[in-house]
Write a protein that binds this DNA or RNA. Sequence first.
DNA 1: TTAAGGACTTAGCAATCGCGCG
DNA 2: CGCGCGATTGCTAAGTCCTTAA
Length: 567
Amino acid sequence: FLSLWPLICAINHFLLTNLRSCTLLDYRWEEERATDGSKWSFLEHKGPVMAAPYEPLPSNVRFFYDGKQMKLSPEAEEVATFFAKMLDHEYTTKDTFRKNFFKDWRKEMTSEEKSKITDLKKCNFNEMGEYFKVQSEARKAMTKDDKLKIKVENERLLQEYGFCIMDNHKERIANFRIEPPGLFRGRGDHPKMGMLKRRIRPEDIIINCSKGSKQPKPPTGTKWKEVRHDNKVTWLVSWTENIQGAIKYIMLNPSSRIKGEKDWQKYETARNLKKCVERLRNQYREDWKSKEMRIRQRAVALYFIDKLALRAGNEKEEGESADTVGCCSLRVEHINLYPEKDGQDFVVEFDFLGKDSIRYYNKVPVEKRVFKNLQLFMENKQPEDDLFDRLNTSILNKHLQELMDGLTAKVFRTYNASITLQQQLKELTTDENLPAKILSYNRANRAVAILCNHQRAQPKTFEKSMQNLQTKIDAKKDQLSDAKRDVKSKKAVERLEEQLMKLEVQATDREENKQIALGTSKLNYLDPRISVAWCKKWGIPIEKIYNKTQREKFAWAIDMAEDDYEF
DNA sequence: TTAAGGACTTAGCAATCGCGCG
DNA sequence: CGCGCGATTGCTAAGTCCTTAA
């Protein structure tokens, strides 16, 4: 294997460079597209990689019920291992999780097991849990050669299943592996946490490819649920998941033509909004005065979406998922009104759980008319009543569609994120050294992340890593003063000063960033042409802003944007 | 008009990678 | 050369919005 590796790398490199030059040569971003709603005319792929089959535990790894050893049937044992693997996780202490798990686990038991195992508290999974810990330690301690074997096998799988042919292009597939079975982990206070996510069989899977293509073969002795040839959609494989009954898809990587073009289109729609946003703002200000309640509600909601970059807020079925809201689904209990607070007039305090149960907390002064309207909307309502009872996302989006072609609520997030980046870059970038410019970029990015409420848990290692950095800074300062004493080494002093500045910038950046996630806005909300243009204008290598994956995703923008690009 | 189904984008966290350091 | 950490990637849940059907 060691001798094979360089060859594999060489082949891989050849393929990648070949693909890249292909992109450059044929300008696939500028190819003509069909107008009949079809997404492709040829699609060929190898189908999904199925999850690895269950391997029963060795007989020395035991399960105990009520203190007594018990040999479980393979089906019940598999589900038990899912729980055992999560023993250290907070999830397994939660009532809902345990209840859902136990209910679903019992469904997999033989009738004998079912009659014996009646109380989760009496189940002892410790040996199983230990076994998996030892296994994962062993994996970490594997020899180089064994690690390489795994790497080679993964690479082989990627080469075989990780690509497809769509309309003359070899494209990378995003998620070509079928999700393995396990226990459902919802986010936040999810009523279904702990339920069994069942194993997906070939009989559950729908394959989508073109008629003339070589069809993917199901594993021997099995059949696909269906093979269809629908070129009005972009997915290659789909199946229905058993927790929410939702459909899951295998689709292409963001670097693909089909995703890139869609992304480009998204930013073009946002730029169209830029052209008419003042008109729209005047319109909703007028509508605050409407004699119709539904119009006032629509106008106030739109104002929030525009000013605060709130999500649309579709209705959700109660009890099916965590209780989270967006703009249209805000309830009376999610806001507080203060005619005067901290020296500001007409302050609205927002406090609610948004997507992924991330808390949105914000205090904002608003126009008097908005404030009065909110008071009106809240009159005679209970805390759990809808704030905008005459509004939903479908009504709002229908209205937006009339104001501008292609306009929906989420376009405001894209527009406000991108315009903020552009403005902030203009404001913050100074003609300093490279690290200072990068810091400016990150600060502009950060302003957007704060606007969009993209948070992350403070890394567990944050305090320590800040300390380490401080130690480095102190050491560098010492070095510097030593060097300064030594009159001969003027060059060395300069170099040390630069290194020290770099470290200090890094520390500032990291501190400001501890609870903010920049990745989401960078990947989904910021027109990449703004960043490409900024790099060109200031002579900054694009690699400083975008890593390899990001450069692949934004290849279209890197190809087309010049230094004078205006969002 | 509403509900359900379907397709696609957006999201944070966990696992893994790979680089700089002693 | 191994270790530890930050960076990157993988995973899949959770949104948005459109279409279809009753």
